[in-house]
């Protein structure tokens, strides 16, 4: 078996006020797959995602357990957090274009990583925009403000911004929350084509979306990872009653 891209072992997370957000999470995420993490609101999905690239450093809470990325513990002191976040890149539910032009948005991360050569920047901009299916719409106005884009375009811009870094893992926290069905389909299609190069971890908008895009899925409920399995089994024949209840719409 190939080595897991990300391996989470006995991970607990407790908020400052003592509330346990994640309880004993253990899961291996193999490379070049779309791993979908689904469950009802406030079940700890975003919290788990933010732990993967240590964005959780910004939050007041305590993590126990381990997250291994390519076999390396991400919580060690010596870990270069900026470098980790370039390799495990994240896209949020609310698109977050930064002030500046479309081109600026895509090159922020690259410049901060020390890449300054114009040819390389241009190549990465074009490649990432094509991967996120935005190139045709914006190729003639890379210099105009990123705020002028539509909601769906902004979200694909943020995806492109992550991809421009050529990361190992792309983490998406409900990337289609504010999008219309057509834009959603566009984003989903680009995800399909991306898994050849990247490992994708995603919190979906709905169970339907989870079933559409997932290779492998995990059901998270009240901070507990109830069930993990291949998508074609988990969504058809769930092993746990709670998973079945959620999938069939009995709650949540």
């Amino acid at each position: 078996m190939t080595q897991a891209k990300i391996s989470i072992q006995n991970l607990y997370y407790t908020y400052e006020d003592g509330i346990e957000a994640l309880r004993d999470i253990s899961v291996d995420i193999p490379p070049n797959e779309i791993f979908v993490l689904f469950g009802p609101a406030r079940s700890g999905k975003s919290t788990l995602l933010r732990l993967l690239n240590r964005l959780s450093d910004l939050d007041d809470g305590l993590a126990q357990g381990a997250v291994y990325f390519n076999g390396q513990d991400v919580f060690t002191r010596s870990m270069n957090v900026s470098d980790l976040r370039r390799r495990i890149s994240m896209v949020f539910a609310i698109p977050t274009p930064l002030p500046g032009s479309i081109y600026d948005n895509l090159t922020y991360g690259l410049k901060m990583a020390g890449i300054r050569e114009k040819g390389e920047l241009d190549r990465r901009v074009e490649q990432s925009l094509k991967q996120s299916a935005l190139w045709d719409e914006v190729k003639d106005r890379l210099g105009s403000s990123a705020f002028a884009l539509s909601g769906g375009q902004k979200q694909r811009l943020c995806l492109a911004r992550s991809l421009a870094l050529e990361p190992d893992v792309v983490v998406l926290d409900n990337p289609t929350s504010g999008l219309d069905p057509i834009s959603t389909a566009t984003v989903e299609e680009s995800l399909y084509s991306l898994k050849e190069r990247y490992t994708i971890i995603m919190v979906p908008h709905s169970v339907q979306q989870a079933a559409r895009v997932a290779d492998r899925a995990g059901f998270l409920l009240d901070g507990e990872l109830v069930e993990v399995g291949k998508a074609d089994k988990l969504f058809v024949q769930p092993q746990d009653q709670r998973t079945e209840d959620y999938i069939t719409g009995r709650f949540g």
């Binding site: 910004l58 900026s82 976040r85 370039r86 890149s89 930064l98 922020y108 901060m112 870094l165």
Partner: peptide
């Protein structure tokens, strides 16, 4: 907005 900071940090900004 906090999202700006998250967005920047998530692409590896210090």
């Amino acid at each position: 907005p906090k999202e700006y900071r998250d967005g920047a940090l998530a692409i590896g900004a210090t």
